[in-house]
Nucleic acid binder design. Structure first.
Length: 108
DNA sequence: CATATGACACTAT
DNA sequence: AATAGTGCCATAT
């Protein structure tokens, strides 16, 4: 959620999404829904995707490690192809544009 | 304040 | 397995 005034130092929902994503280790993945639950907003999976899409810290926030709960790759600002390549470089198997979510999922 | 948007999730076909 | 419809929710306009 967006800060309402100058004294509100709490980070916004969007920023908290970026911070939480940083916690996902190399070689693991999480889902938009998992992140939403972790942040205390179980129904905000879609909003999580929006936040990552606006992430200005490409290279700092490993947003490529966030995939769909179904295992489908999901979106990526620089293109799904890049997202898949990045995952493969980390040892995450991607077959038919899907990952075995149960096998690589990082439990917060 | 009202609508629209989108890197989603879930259920039912 | 793949698709379609519905609900969701933070932001943008």
């Amino acid at each position: 959620m967006k800060p309402r005034n100058k004294l509100d130092n709490k980070i916004s929902f969007t920023e908290s999404v970026w911070e939480a994503t940083k916690l996902v280790p190399f070689g693991f993945v999480t889902s938009y829904g998992c992140l939403a639950r972790f942040l205390g907003r179980p129904g905000a999976s879609r909003a999580v995707g929006n936040a990552l899409n606006k992430n200005p810290y490409i290279g700092v926030v490993p947003c490529h490690r966030v995939v769909r709960s179904s295992g489908d790759i999901g979106g990526f600002a620089l293109g799904a192809k890049d997202k898949i390549e990045k995952l493969k470089k980390e040892g995450v198997e991607v077959r038919s544009n899907k990952v075995e979510i149960n096998k690589y999922l990082f439990n917060f």
